[in-house]
Design a protein around this nucleic acid. Structure first.
Lengths: 212, 212
DNA sequence: GTCTATAGAGTGATAGAC
DNA sequence: GTCTATCACTCTATAGAC
């Protein structure tokens, strides 16, 4: 990809994150890149084309992130791996914040993203199942329990920034989102799992309380 | 409030729910109401004025709903009261779905809604605390646990429709949102609480599984 | 109260010179 | 590849007749 194309995409992501997808015009992107509208349109025919390229970028980054991950999830590795995952949600936050508008206007991305979400939830479920096997989590107490939990965990991660924006809470995004995840999981941890989690947070008083 | 004003607000809510707040023009609202743009502007100076009136309507309905509620929450009354609350999220879904765009463009509503959310979370917390007193829920196992849980419950309720739209799942909104709430709470229920919950769902196999 | 007509500022996208 | 100029359109809001 040409340098100009890369610069356009970078400027676009920054602007989208700042003002929201629908509030950024191709004029804004052009001037922020330092080129003319005509030139921008030469590189990307439409605004949708820019979005599609960014989405490809998101998928690529996420895949390379997941492929680099330890296959044996322990409490510690899960804790550490949450960091880059949450980081992606932040880097391309406009996509997750404005997802409803985006899929309304772009059926192609809508479909891709839908299966992507499905994959993510199943990935979480697999980590939970494996944690049962390694004795960090208790077995399901009723059928479907961990499917539900996976779904809620996904919601927590993918809407965390959204709720933070709405409530105008500024705190440490990574830290708080990760705390919320662990607090949700705690009741399902075995004694072994709890002990492992405690080791991670031992330097702190406890898993941080929400700021009410 | 004049009949015309009421008709405008009703048409506006319907259109906002269908197409999303930003995608509805005052022309759309006028023609859907069956009046001219000029006439619409006579009744509401700006699009923001329409939104503010709708927001007032939401608050009024919610207050009258909460004031009519049993003060002694049991598992059964909580279950029943979830229905009208979830119903409100559905009736004014555009507000919750497009909340980010709405607060971006309307600081006044942003501030009101922020304190409103705060109240809701504290209300949930109060219900949990009371449920501990009545023996339906276990005492907190660590400080801040139920504050966290209240927050997550609020997220689940307020983003449920959002995730449903994104994932293009059509199922029964009330039924599924309520199941998600109970599934989140189950690990914290006492034996008494579990028994009471079981009574409610006894005609079903179990609390419904998510559709994967 | 209700209408038509229009101002004025945006938008995405394109034509055509260099 | 890059630019300027412009088309064709949509939007909110208002002016002024009835």
């Amino acid at each position: 990809m040409s340098l100009t194309k890369q610069k356009i995409l970078k400027a676009a992501v920054d602007l989208f994150n700042q003002k929201g997808y629908v509030n950024v015009s191709i004029r804004d992107i052009a001037s922020s890149t330092g080129i003319s509208v005509g030139n921008l349109s030469y590189h990307f025919n439409t605004k949708a084309a820019i979005l599609e390229n960014i989405y490809q970028q998101i998928i690529t980054e996420r895949n390379s992130l997941l492929s680099g991950i330890q296959l044996i999830p322990t409490v510690k590795t899960i804790h550490e791996q949450l960091s880059p995952i949450i980081g992606l949600y932040q880097k391309y936050q406009f996509f997750y914040l404005d997802i409803l508008e985006i899929i309304r206007a772009n059926p192609k991305i809508a479909k891709l993203h839908r299966t992507h979400i499905q994959t993510q939830i199943q990935y979480i479920k697999a980590v939970l199942d494996y944690s049962v096997e390694t004795g960090n989590m208790l077995p399901e107490s009723h059928k479907g329990q961990y499917q539900h939990l996976s779904h809620t965990l996904w919601m927590l991660l993918s809407f965390w920034l959204h709720q933070q924006k709405i409530r105008a809470k500024e705190g440490n995004y990574l830290h708080e989102a990760r705390s919320a995840v662990w607090n949700l999981v705690i009741p399902y941890l075995s004694d072994k799992g709890k002990k492992n989690l405690h080791t991670i947070y031992e330097k702190q008083y406890t898993i941080s309380n929400p700021k009410s």
